[in-house]
Design a protein around this nucleic acid. Sequence first.
DNA 1: CTCTAAGCGAGACGGTACGTCAAGTCTTACA
DNA 2: TGTAAGACTTGACGTACCGTCTCGCTTAGAG
Lengths: 201, 201, 201, 201
Amino acid sequence: MERNDAEPAKRGRGRPPSAEVRRRVLETAAAVLLENGISEVTFDKVARRAGVSRMTLYKWFRSPASLALAAFEDTYADSLRPESSGDLWADLRAHLREFAANLSEPRTAPMVAGLLGSAQHDPKLAEEISATYTRPRREGAVALLRAGRERGQLPAAVDAEALVDQLWGACYARLLLPEGKLDEAFADALVDNLRALADPG
Amino acid sequence: MERNDAEPAKRGRGRPPSAEVRRRVLETAAAVLLENGISEVTFDKVARRAGVSRMTLYKWFRSPASLALAAFEDTYADSLRPESSGDLWADLRAHLREFAANLSEPRTAPMVAGLLGSAQHDPKLAEEISATYTRPRREGAVALLRAGRERGQLPAAVDAEALVDQLWGACYARLLLPEGKLDEAFADALVDNLRALADPG
Amino acid sequence: MERNDAEPAKRGRGRPPSAEVRRRVLETAAAVLLENGISEVTFDKVARRAGVSRMTLYKWFRSPASLALAAFEDTYADSLRPESSGDLWADLRAHLREFAANLSEPRTAPMVAGLLGSAQHDPKLAEEISATYTRPRREGAVALLRAGRERGQLPAAVDAEALVDQLWGACYARLLLPEGKLDEAFADALVDNLRALADPG
Amino acid sequence: MERNDAEPAKRGRGRPPSAEVRRRVLETAAAVLLENGISEVTFDKVARRAGVSRMTLYKWFRSPASLALAAFEDTYADSLRPESSGDLWADLRAHLREFAANLSEPRTAPMVAGLLGSAQHDPKLAEEISATYTRPRREGAVALLRAGRERGQLPAAVDAEALVDQLWGACYARLLLPEGKLDEAFADALVDNLRALADPG
DNA sequence: CTCTAAGCGAGACGGTACGTCAAGTCTTACA
DNA sequence: TGTAAGACTTGACGTACCGTCTCGCTTAGAG
């Protein structure tokens, strides 16, 4: 068993955190997040509705947005499953469709947008989002493109990092900017545009 | 308080709005926006620093973010000049470079990011940003791409609306997401990726 | 009409304070002071019970104890009436009896004690109490004794300032220290002790 | 002040309290008391600074003020030595001078004042102070006066209990009320006033 | 020489209050 | 009528303590 050697194994370990309390907090925060959006996820409201002390929230979460992120991950976040079939274009189409569907789902879309919006004022939140949500997805996407390029399905000169932003990033842009709708048709269009360029016939 | 001697006090029917006051407000808001970021642009602070009544701000601006937007436009917004040379790829490269340079400029980048961030919680602000900032630029971009397509520089099947998001939108994604840096090299990579696809040689 | 020239006569004078609010605050604070003692006079409680915003209290009162003092003065403080008959000993007896009765009155005694107790941790409160309560009374007492001394009813060598503490101060000591009861008999004993010394027969 | 004096300490079972811990606690509390005054003597601060668990303090002391009192007694309290020479006036002068000097000493004065101040909101603390500090001194003083009266140095009619408050109590009044300074000159004045009354020549 | 109860450290949790900031609304007076 | 000035409410943030309640380690003396 790997004991965490960094932890100095204090003598008294103190009262253990209550799973019950943690559950109530995250559930309540998730509910508020769903009903009223991230800007209503405040320590005050969640503490009151969850029947929990505000102090407890201050101990666990840096900020209300951070709490919202935890609730989002706990309740709504999709589990990413980066499968690859070998056919790059089919993979791209499938993944982007699912990604766009996810981001445009009426319940979760405002949550993700709200979280990313809050992250613009809160670098630590940005880092948290990046670590648990954004970065893993991006790495999967980069890997997918690189694999395709190595299989010769993309020109060698293609910059995979930039291309990720031209596919997944474009979806984020549609989510976060007021112009343009995000839907599966858009996801298809992203892939089709690339194919049209590669094969103008 | 300087009296505005230029204004002839039109027919004594009520006091005319003071241009002086408006100027001071916008200047102060711009300064706060620059120094402390959008989240510090509050009616309270600006009113105090500008030596202006808070009531006045409530009359003119829907919200602090809206004030920040006005100050941003008044002081920092770039004047868009949609020139086109006829060479699509050269135009794209030039425009995107300038766009990326603008968005990644250390002074304005956090402002735009902050404004777009706030817009995620404030639909009216989103609409304001769209009307005065985002939409015009997008329309210029779409027109540019459509013109290129009509000149045969892009396959007919290309979806110009989606392609805009794959170029300019990708830049926004880099601005707003924690991963990846936004710079001129990235702008070049966006264009080069498309050219590499179109001409794998 | 004497205008306060120190005040720069601002142009707009702003909304005037609401007498209604002030009244409700002081009444509520006085009630809490009476029912639960000074340590329960908190901004929180008073604001809630008075149906008033806590912010308002923070504007008007430096501290909860200061609010309690204001409420005490507004509602319970005795109006001092320094009458003198010419007979020093009769005056002393009368004044001290009334003073002791006042301080030992079951309703007000804990208030005064509590206020003076709080003042031990709060120099500003001490000064406030001194200015509005303690000092005027002491000055009246000193004047009374000096007048008596000048009339030859006290030896010329007597230190009036110290003697005040040996009469009124002794009452405060009984109020504030756990030993000894404060009542009219004690007030009499204070005067009688001096007379017994002056006239051992 | 230890809480469970009633408990007969069942035949020495269990781990005995650690003298080391007790020492650290009292030292730390005394230091805080000296540096920051009684209102800063909180279980939280003392526990942290002493490197001791807050629980331990809750076991030993009823309240922070009670802890402060214990620390005060342990470190700063004067040992009372009720000596009597036979000359009442000389004894009074000496004792009151020492008493006043003690109470007006810059380090301890605010402690005593603070403790007595806190006692106004805390009857149990008042009783503790009375038992260990105030009452013994008063009893010594009463005995001194009674002895003098029996020796004929005071009129038989003098009320010794009241007279104590006219001497020692007057000092407490000067300590606790904002008016008047407490010093040795004041102590002398108290005695001199009585002598002047007794012997107007 | 073990068992066991108490002392103790560490920490979770609830609660109350403080003090601050800002949004919004309303009111008065002035220019 | 546009502004200044300010009163008031609401709601949230963040901090500081208090007081209670587990855990689990430590330790001295009773058996």
